[in-house]
Design a protein around this nucleic acid. Structure first.
Length: 456
RNA sequence: GUGGUUGUAGCUCAGCUGGUUAGAGCGUCGGUUUGUGGUACCGAAAGUCGCCGGUUCGAACCCGGUCUUCCACCCCA
């Protein structure tokens, strides 16, 4: 046997059942997006490198798939650059395009590029694959789908409120109960950094803080020290590590910690507004939780930060994330355009639904009736009937070969086709069809109109 | 990018401290049953033991490299 073909690391093939389950999730998300007034757009799978590079930090640049130029691209590299063997020097000279890494940056590019045609505030959704040159592991692939909804052109916090509702609506519709929508605010994090005298180390500080529940208080402090945050600053953080309780209690504690920070108090005010609004309209099944250690996300979040974690007991990274980014389009030259958005991780939601057995049984609808093939003449009669049934909207097919009955019946079984029809010499003579129910085993000789009525 | 792990028939996996013709279950194909499936019984086909190299009289098994799988770290959906 020849060497078996394969697909690249971190990619997958999907069979019919998997496609059906994925569509079920996608359709649910799409339906809610539309219900909330978002319009679909699509962007190319690859962008100009400069659109993507530098938008996700150094770590992100490493994970972007670069596309090699066409033609004699090496001849454009000078001997000096070539000899340098420096990836950073050579890559831009041999690669001018890259696969999209997420949907947010291409969206920002889209908004800037089409700013004169867009009616603001602009609400769009986008469901497309993205690629990351990451090492695969649980719930992490090199090709995966993101389902994003974003609004640009409005500072209103009602947008944040609606996104919390949208998360709740989608997961409730998917019957995925007990998800936690974690929320934080970049301004609160900035305020804390300010209070401890580490404004300039905001990213290092937040990345360390984010690991609190994973590596524990002491190691977080170690990491902060190693990044150059002073001991007295870390001392001031102490109340933060013990921050517990419901939304309101945490808010009150934060107010005293941040009492001297204008920006911190602004962040608290925003969180309070969102929480109050959600308390008023109520969520169906999700929980909204304030998590001051939540600091993930990209360098461009400026206000709210969201992350959705799977119900307790399911080992899975976040199944959604998002936030407010005041300045994203600024990178592409369009100022004063605030945006906020969220993303659903389709592939991870799939794994969670699978693990909890939450997919409906009936999503994979296949052929309803299979005509058994007894030979050319009989098959011709069947073909006419198949054609008419299809015109009536009934999924019907004819077994293409006059194989042994056992084989044909087995085929119907394996594909879960609920009915077969047998047409032999006798049926042709009587102008009847023998319909067999593959579940009960019962069978009847019917006229075509009776047949059609039964299958309808 | 770092560390660990996995690879044997179409699928899931056995295979002892290296030792003759590498096994099982499921599936496939054929038969019992030439127009009646799911059950049962009988039989058959099917593997360069991931790939390349090394050690050895002898390698699925030991060693090195490489690819792949899965897991953790970094980071993230």
């Amino acid at each position: 046997m020849a060497q078996k073909p394969s697909i690249p690391k971190g990619t997958r093939d999907f069979d019919a059942a998997e496609v059906a389950k994925r569509s079920y999730i996608m359709d649910t998300i799409k339906q809610q997006f539309q219900l909330y007034g978002f319009q679909p757009i699509e962007t190319p799978s690859f962008e100009n490198s400069e659109t993507l590079m530098g938008k996700y930090g150094d770590e992100g640049d490493r994970l972007i798939f670069k596309i090699l130029n066409s033609g004699e691209f090496l001849s454009k590299v000078s001997d000096q650059d070539y000899d340098s063997k420096s990836e950073q020097t050579i890559t831009p000279k041999i690669s001018e395009k890259a696969l999209r890494y997420d949907l947010t940056v291409p969206f920002a590019r889209y908004v800037v590029q089409h700013q004169n045609e867009i009616e603001f505030p602009f609400k769009r959704y986008q469901i497309q694959p993205v690629w990351r040159a990451d090492r695969p592991q649980k719930g992490r692939f090199r090709e995966f789908f993101q389902c994003d909804a974003d609004v640009v052109g409005s500072d209103s916090l009602f947008q944040e409120v609606e996104f919390v509702q949208l998360y709740d609506a989608v997961f409730s519709t998917l019957k995925l109960k007990g998800v936690t929508i974690k929320i934080n605010n970049r301004k609160v994090l900035s305020g804390i950094a300010e209070v401890i005298g580490a404004q300039d180390k905001l990213i290092d500080f937040t990345v360390a803080l984010d690991k609190l529940d994973k590596i524990g208080e002491e190691k977080v402090k170690d990491e902060m020290r190693s990044k150059g945050i002073s001991d007295e600053g870390i001392e001031k953080l102490q109340p933060l590590f013990g921050l517990k309780g419901d939304f309101g209690t945490q808010i009150e504690n934060l107010k005293s910690i941040l009492s001297t920070s204008e920006i911190g108090l602004k962040g608290i005010e925003e969180l309070e507004f969102i929480n109050n609004a959600i308390s008023t309209v109520k969520l169906k099944t999700a929980k909204l939780q304030l998590d001051v250690t939540l600091a993930r996300g990209l360098n461009y979040y400026t206000g709210a930060i969201f992350e959705v974690s799977a119900p307790e007991g399911v080992k899975m990274g976040s199944i959604g994330g998002g936030g407010r980014y005041d300045d994203l389009t600024g990178i592409f030259g369009l100022k004063n355009m605030s945006g906020v958005g969220i993303s659903f991780g389709l592939d991870r939601i799939y794994l969670v639904l699978e693990e909890l057995n939450l997919f409906p049984e009936t999503i994979a609808d296949s052929t309803k009736v299979l005509f058994i093939n007894f030979g050319k003449n009989e098959a011709m009669t069947c073909l006419k009937a198949v054609t008419k049934l299809r015109q009536a909207g009934i999924r019907a097919e004819l077994y293409p070969d006059d194989a042994k009955m056992r084989k044909q019946m087995n085929h119907a079984n394996r594909r879960n086709i609920p009915f077969v029809i047998l047409v032999g010499e006798e049926e042709i003579k009587d102008e009847k069809f023998t319909l067999k129910n593959m579940v009960s085993g019962e069978q009847n000789k019917l006229s075509f109109s009776e047949l059609q009525a039964t299958l309808k």
